[in-house]
Design a protein around this nucleic acid. Structure first.
Length: 427
RNA sequence: GGAGGAAUGGCAGAGUGGUUGAAUGCACCGGUCUUGAAAACCGACGUACCGCAAGGUACCGGGGGUUCGAAUCCCUCUUCCUCCGCCA
């Protein structure tokens, strides 16, 4: 959520930034400022009356003590009058505050100055191209959903039986590979200074709202009605919220967290050839990294996170490129996002495997996540990234590493998986 | 799920209707003393919002109510603790 003061003080910069999202925010911004003006007006008026009430109440107390009952009763009448006035004022104040918040929630984050303008993924900037020859597979190379059958990696039919479409069941060495990857990622992340957490997979409404999933992505989350809880779409949500409402000392920063969780996404309306196999599923495993950083350091930290994720992909020996998302393709809450895409030689397309973003103060404003400065308190910057999402990594490993002799695993996984390659099932 | 108890500032912990935003201790910060440190002593020490400022308002788990006035009384919700039951 953007801060009203920023909208007031930097109106032009905000509007210009939001235009990169193909959004003309001028009417909304003006409505917000108008509501905030009204809010201040009502608040001053109300508080003046309350101040009078408070001082009268004190006098009444003294008068009663001194036995001056008549004088006290006269003042009591005045206080009653004040109450009659403040009632409607306070009601209106609450209404205006609600409307103000409603408007603010509709406004996405302002893109960072380096973010390219644009409407669709075609406008994304190739920030770091793949510097090599894209691998070519022998004729007859299979996509991962066919390899999954041959090698017994995962089974979509079983998921349909237990749950429904888009819930893969990982089996045998596929399940083992998944576990190996989770461990590999967590080890690398903790070695890089991220503290490991195993957070809840269900969160309450306040939590979902604070990181911006509500109201923007309401329909994308699974909702447990009986207990009013949401299944997390990413570990970002519980991890970032661990610090909701905190006031940190600069010495505590940056806070670096990592966590492995399943992620749940309804993905309503996503069907077609590009969502076959593991390309898009309702439940998947992901290891996430999160940082809480000083504003002046957050973009350095973003670079650090990008390099870290790039290191993981390099170790996995997967050809990848990094995109800087254009305004129109960026998430609602992000100020700048880098997407990592792995090349799938069998599908001959790029698969997104990680998204690394700086949210600046957009989340921390809702989180009330601040740090102490000489002058007072300031909002922190929050950042997060996938390190990494499992299904498409598995898809890419299967497809790119297939040989006549089996699927060769990258060397770094040998210690985690126990074997050098995946073996076909005996049929 | 049943019964009882509790929720106060960074922590501990007073406070049951009227100068209580809140005693006291600890921690933290500034200072005195000291070659330095410790100890001792002195001082400062919550957050948000409104206001140019002076100052004001709100907040003692959340919400609502009683009252001229609520941390303090009432209702309700949540969470934690103890005991019982059930259970991975």
């Amino acid at each position: 959520m953007l801060q009203v003061n920023i909208l007031r003080q930097e109106r032009d910069r905000v509007l210009e930034g939001l235009r990169k999202r193909q959004l003309d925010a001028a009417p909304a911004v003006d409505r917000i400022i108008g509501l905030d003006d009204r809010r201040k007006e009502l608040q001053s008026e109300t508080e003046n009356l309350l101040a009078e009430r408070n001082s009268l109440s004190k006098e009444i107390g003294d008068l009663f003590k001194n036995g001056k009952k008549d004088e006290a009763n006269a003042k009591r009448q005045r206080v009653s009058d004040i109450k009659e006035q403040t009632g409607p004022l306070e009601t209106e104040l609450e209404t205006v505050k609600g409307e103000l918040e409603e408007e603010l929630l509709q406004l996405p984050n302002v893109p960072y100055h380096l973010v390219p303008a644009g409407a669709t993924p075609d406008d994304n900037e190739v920030y770091r191209p793949y510097d090599g020859e894209l691998p070519r597979l022998a004729a007859g190379a299979k996509p991962h959903w066919e390899l999954a059958d041959t090698y017994g990696i995962f089974d979509l039919e079983l998921g349909v039986r237990t749950t429904g479409s888009g819930f893969p069941v990982f089996t045998g060495q596929g399940a083992r590979l998944q576990r190996a990857l989770v461990n590999f990622f967590l080890d690398r992340n903790t070695a890089a200074g991220y503290t490991e957490y195993a957070p809840p997979l269900l969160v309450n409404e306040d939590t979902a709202r604070a990181t911006g999933q509500l109201p923007d992505k309401e329909g994308q989350m699974y909702y447990v009605q009986a207990d009013d809880l949401y299944l997390i779409p990413t570990a970002e949500v519980p991890l970032t919220n661990l610090y909701r409402g905190e006031l940190l000392e600069p010495a505590q920063l940056p806070v670096k967290m990592t966590g492995y969780t399943p992620c749940f996404r309804r993905e309503a309306g996503s069907y077609g050839a590009h969502v076959r196999g593991l390309n898009r599923v309702h439940q998947f495993d992901k290891v996430e990294i999160v940082q809480l950083a000083l504003p002046e350091e957050s973009y350095t930290k973003l670079d650090e996170m990008v390099d870290h994720v790039a290191g993981l992909l390099t170790e996995l020996e997967l050809p990848f490129r990094i995109l800087r998302l254009c305004g129109g393709d960026m998430g609602f809450t992000s100020a700048m996002t880098f997407d990592f895409e792995v090349w799938s030689a069998a599908q001959e397309r790029w698969l997104e495997v990680s998204s690394v973003s700086n949210f600046e103060t957009y989340q921390s404003n809702r989180l009330k996540l601040r740090y102490r400065t000489e002058r007072g308190t300031e909002l922190l910057h929050t950042l997060n990234g996938s390190a990494l999402a499992l299904p498409r990594i598995i898809a890419a490993l299967l497809e790119n590493k297939q040989t006549d002799a089996g699927i060769l695993l990258p060397e770094v996984l040998h210690a985690y998986f126990g074997k050098e390659k995946l073996q076909p099932l005996r049929s």
